[in-house]
Structure formats: structure tokens, C-alpha cells
């Protein structure tokens, strides 16, 4: 990951070390869904979803349990095939030659994607190296620092509390930069202070031209976010 211009920006922003300059090749103008029907296990869970999220904005998915927030996020990420409609990632003309959805998303689901046998820093360093292709210890440490885990860096990840493990999972977002964050209940298991850290990370990400689609049924402050209300679970047909 290029780190050009990081230092001057980092002084202004409250997030220590968050690399705010998304490299231009990764930039995304908007994520657009049109007439999207999402299915899981052959059953249509949400239907007729259309939205357009521009860079720098967040989309909050709200709705009761079973309303299809996770299904929608997993469909956007490409894990599930949509039953109808489609999702388009609009990139600036400069990088139109690249496949539209390659290397765009970060997805944080209910599981944290961390290995208890590895230390905290090894966990985040792995994701950093895996996503960006070159080991960068500083980026990994900055990501830990942004979520207040730097003092635990050499601890085994298996000894972390629920909230700390969640923060370690979230640190992946900052260790390797990607323009679109798909977050499924990211504040689960986080206390108030940690939720503020997450809000700051999301805000810095949006300010640097990224975008985020966040499912949440708890209070997570997302300044001027678009809101998509998903309805009641539909009866099986």
C-alpha cells in the first residue's frame, strides 16, 4: 500500500495511522444496486432493493432480525448469487479496464476471521500482507493502534476478550485499504469507547473517499448516512 502523503493527513485526523490516501487504482465512484432480489437457500429473503451509494457516503441497513441484512451484504460481497437484478461497482474512467469488482470489498461478518494460535500482531500482519501483497509492519501496527490493541500486539489472540477479538477483526479494515467496507453488525460485542473508535475509523474512511455499507440495529453514529429499511421477514412461498 502506498503511504505517500500519510503523515500530513494523519496529523489532522484523529485516527492514528489510518492511511487516508486510498491509492487511486482502488478508487470507486459508487456502488449501485438495481432491482436486487437476494436469495438464501432457494428462498427470496429480500426483494426489489435499489440504491446508489456515492464515494464518501455510508449506507445503513436497518431492520428487525431476519429481515435480510446479512443476506443482502453477502450478496453484495459476491458470496451469494442474486435471484434477480445486479450490483455494479462504478469506477473512475482511469481504471475502467480492471474487472469491476476485483479487490474492492472488505467484508466483516459475524465471525472475526482471527486465529487464536497466532499473536495479535501476526493476525493483522497476515491480512495486511495477504491483501496488499507486501509486508508492511507499520501499517499493521497502525491498524492495531487505531483500535487500541497495540499494547496487546504480542499476546496470543486466543486470550483476547470478545470485544478485543472483535476489534482485532475490524483492524483488518485499516491494515489493508480497500474502498468499499461491508460491515455486518460491526459494533457487536464492542463497548461504548470501542464503538467510538469504530465510528472514527468509518468516518476517516468516508472522508478519504471510501464508502461503507453497514448493517446495524444498535446505535452506531453514521453521519449523514443513507438509510435502507428492510421489511419484516416474508412468509415462505
Amino acid at each position: 500500500m502506498k503511504r505517500g502523503g500519510t503523515f500530513s493527513l494523519a496529523r489532522i485526523e484523529p485516527i492514528p495511522g489510518a492511511n487516508l490516501a486510498l491509492s487511486r487504482t482502488l478508487a470507486v465512484e459508487a456502488v449501485v444496486a438495481e432491482g436486487l432480489d437476494c436469495q438464501r437457500g432457494g428462498r427470496t429473503v429480500v426483494s426489489g432493493i435499489s440504491f446508489r451509494v456515492e464515494a464518501g457516503r455510508a449506507l445503513a441497513l436497518r431492520g428487525p432480525n431476519g429481515s435480510g441484512k446479512t443476506t443482502l451484504l453477502r450478496t453484495i460481497a459476491g458470496y451469494l448469487q442474486p435471484a434477480a437484478g445486479g450490483i455494479e461497482v462504478i469506477r473512475p474512467a482511469a481504471c475502467a479496464s480492471k474487472p469491476a469488482d476485483e479487490g474492492v470489498y472488505h467484508y466483516i461478518g459475524h465471525a472475526n476471521g482471527i486465529k487464536p494460535r497466532l499473536s495479535v500482531i501476526e493476525n493483522v500482519s497476515f491480512w495486511q500482507g495477504f491483501y496488499s501483497g507486501a509486508a508492511d509492519v507499520e501499517a499493521a501496527e497502525d491498524a492495531l493502534d487505531a483500535f487500541g490493541l497495540l499494547n496487546l500486539a504480542s499476546f496470543s489472540a486466543g486470550h483476547l476478550s470478545q470485544g478485543q477479538a472483535r476489534r482485532l477483526g475490524l483492524a483488518r479494515l485499516l491494515a489493508a485499504r480497500r474502498p468499499v467496507w461491508l460491515l455486518d453488525e460491526p459494533q457487536a460485542a464492542l463497548d461504548v469507547a470501542s464503538t467510538r473508535l469504530l465510528e472514527r475509523a468509518i468516518a476517516a474512511h468516508l472522508a478519504s473517499g471510501g464508502l461503507a455499507i453497514v448493517s446495524t440495529h444498535l446505535d452506531l453514529a453514521l453521519p449523514d448516512a443513507l438509510i435502507l429499511e428492510l421489511g419484516k421477514p416474508q412468509p415462505a412461498q
Binding site: H106, Y107, H110, N112, G113, W127, F130, R172
Partner: peptide, 9 residues
Amino acid sequence: DGSLDALVL
């Protein structure tokens, strides 16, 4: 543990 989700992205 959710790693596979992240790996395929």
C-alpha cells in the same frame, strides 16, 4: 472462524 470469507475477497 470467518477467515474463508475474507480470503476469497
